[in-house]
Every structure is written in C-alpha cells, then in structure tokens.
Amino acid sequence: MSQNLQPSLRSVLVLGARGRFGRAAVQAFAESGWQVFAQMRPGGQALDIPGVRWLAVAPRDTAALADAARGATVVVQALSPTYTHKAWRDEVPALTQAAIDITRALGATMLLPASVYNFGSGMPERLHEDTPQNPTTFKGRMRVRSEAMVRAATQDGRMKAVIIRGGDFFGSGTGSWFDLVMTKAVRNGKLTYPGPMDVPTAWAYLPDMARSFVKVAEHRHALPAFETLHFAGYRLTGQKWADAMAGVAWERGWLPAKGRLQVSSVSWLFMRAVGLFVPTVAALCEMRYLWRTPHALVNTRMATLIGEEPHTPFAEALRTSLDELGFGGPSVVEPVSRAVAPAAEAHA
C-alpha cells in the first residue's frame, strides 16, 4: 500500500471510504489509474489497495483533511449516517456541509451518490433528471435538502458538483435489502422478496455505479457548475430476481430435492410492529412504497456525457454479489430440476 503519493490531475478524495459505496468508489478509481485519497474515521482499518493513501481523519476536521488530500481535483461524497430518522436529522446536514467545505478548500468537483427518495410515492414510472421532486417521506425531504445545499455551494465558482442518482444498491458488501433480507436463506433454496413480484423497480450494482463515477470524473470539464445525472442500472421485477436466483441456486446445489426455489414475502405487518421498538426497522417501513411503485431511471444525460454506462450482465452481478457474502458452496442436496416456485404477491 503506497503512502507516498504525489498530487495529480487524476487525483480523488473519497469521503467515507470504508462505507459500502465508498469502498466501491476507491476500488473503481484505483483500478482506473487514479491516485486515491481514502478518508476513514480515526481507528479505522485501512485496506491494502495499490495506489490508495488512507487518511484516518474525522470528516468534520475539514482543514486537516483538505490539507492531507491537497491536490485532489475530485471529491466523492460517500459519507452516510445510520439508517434512522434521528441519525439523518442530526448528521446529514453536518456531513453534507463538511463535504462542501472540503471540496471548496480543494477547488474540486464533488460527485454525490443519490437515491430516488426525492420523488416521493407519487413518482411517475420513468424518472428523468428534471422530473419534479415531491418527497413524501422524511428521508426524501432530507435528500432534497442535502442536494439543495450542494447546489447552493456551487454558485460562487469555488466548486462544481454532480449528483448521480441510482436505484436500490446491491453488491460490494453488506447493508441493503439484498443481503439483509432477500438472500438470508438463499443457500437453503429460499428467496424473500419485499414487494409484489410483478412490479419493476430500479437497482444499482455498486461496482458498475462506481465505475460510472470514474467516467463522469474524467468528463467533468464538460459539465456546468451543478449537474444531475441518472445511473439506469437494472429495472427488475421480483420474478426476474427469482428466475435469476433459481439459476444460481441450481448451479450451486442450493435447491431442495424437488428442485424449486421457494419465494416468500416480507411481513410488513410484523415489521411495523417491530418498528415500534427498533428505529431502523421503522425507517425501512416508511420506504415501503418503493416496492409497490413501478419506477426506472432514465439516463439520457449520463449517456450523452460518457456513452454507454458500465453494465455487468445481471446474472454475473448476482453471482459475484453472492460470492462476496460468502455464499460460494453447496449447502443442500443436489437438485433434480431447475424451477421457480409460483410467484405470489410479496406484501402484507
């Protein structure tokens, strides 16, 4: 691991580099030959990735962090609080302001991963970059507020910023519906899906999204002071998830003797009850509408800027994501056929 790197025009500071998206961004920029400054909290464990200098500096110590990353021309804002209302209320504005202060001190371009929360429960099926934002949840309103702070910070010419919006994350670690709920029992031939099986929703495979950040960074000079781009990723129904998962389960010997992937639903009634005592679960329940509302991100501006966005075939992305979770070997008897249990409405 190199610790004696010199600043260059292809130099990036990744804030929250030990978080899920932060790690994916560090890997993508390093693999593309960028010099990477990777911020982690004091006491964090550095990863051995060639071309990366780890900075154990608190994100709010902006002067020290900007000095340590002097010469970085791009800042990836991957800082994120825990998934509760209190954490978002207390930390999102402060973390956003810290990222702004660091970017302005460096005279850099900020790249910020964003979600579809901004559009609210009444969102249309096709989400364009200029689709009106009408958030209907606390997190949606906080996202809109955060992005407005970033936009305002670009108005005096001291920094640029690009919002890159993606769907539900999977891949590159843990901390999403994919690993926390959907695949918990996949080695026993079971898939748990949180929504109706026939509703298409947007998904972002993080290695692909991170690679799109690299491409945007390399074309940033063609952009205005503030821009919003959409990462299309995948548009998947629960049935598409089940079909793909059945194929992987068949290949790896995870299906029971009758050879059928069992698909079960999430009990939202039970989750709401748990949410009365567990704030994280309550916050998840608030976003239930995302599973019931068809939506897809239209990436017109992204494609115009970088061409075809990075896109791993879904089956390959699924296999790799499962491997990263340690689901690499058989756990049940060999299957006799490759089939999927009949789909059912996956909601309470």
Rank of each mutant, 00 (worst) to 15 (best):
L284H: 04
P59D: 10
S176H: 07
E91N: 07
K190I: 08
R272E: 09
S337N: 06
E218Y: 04
V181F: 05
A94R: 08
F314A: 11
V274M: 12
D208F: 05
V150T: 06
V278F: 04
T183N: 13
W177D: 02
A114T: 14
F29A: 07
Q39S: 15
L5E: 05
G16H: 07
R151N: 08
F29T: 04
A244Q: 03
L269H: 00
G175D: 07
T228Y: 03
G171Y: 04
A222L: 15
A341S: 15
P313N: 05
G307A: 06
G16D: 13
G22S: 11
L318E: 04
R165W: 06
A246H: 05
E91D: 15
R20P: 02
Q155S: 13
G16P: 13
V52M: 14
L236F: 01
W54F: 15
F277V: 05
M302F: 02
V266I: 06
F138D: 15
V186T: 06
P7A: 09
R141E: 15
G195I: 02
L5M: 08
T103V: 02
Q35F: 08
P294A: 03
R104W: 12
N118Q: 15
V278P: 00
T183S: 14
W54K: 13
G157D: 06
A339R: 10
W54I: 14
A87W: 05
T131A: 14
G328T: 12
A161Y: 08
L206G: 03
A64E: 10
A87G: 04
R165P: 09
W177N: 02
M287D: 07
P7N: 07
A78I: 07
A343M: 13
Q3G: 00
M197D: 02
T320E: 14
K190L: 10
P310L: 01
M287W: 02
L55T: 13
L5T: 09
L276C: 02
A303G: 08
D67V: 07
P313K: 11
A346K: 04
G22Q: 12
N188H: 05
L5D: 03
G253D: 11
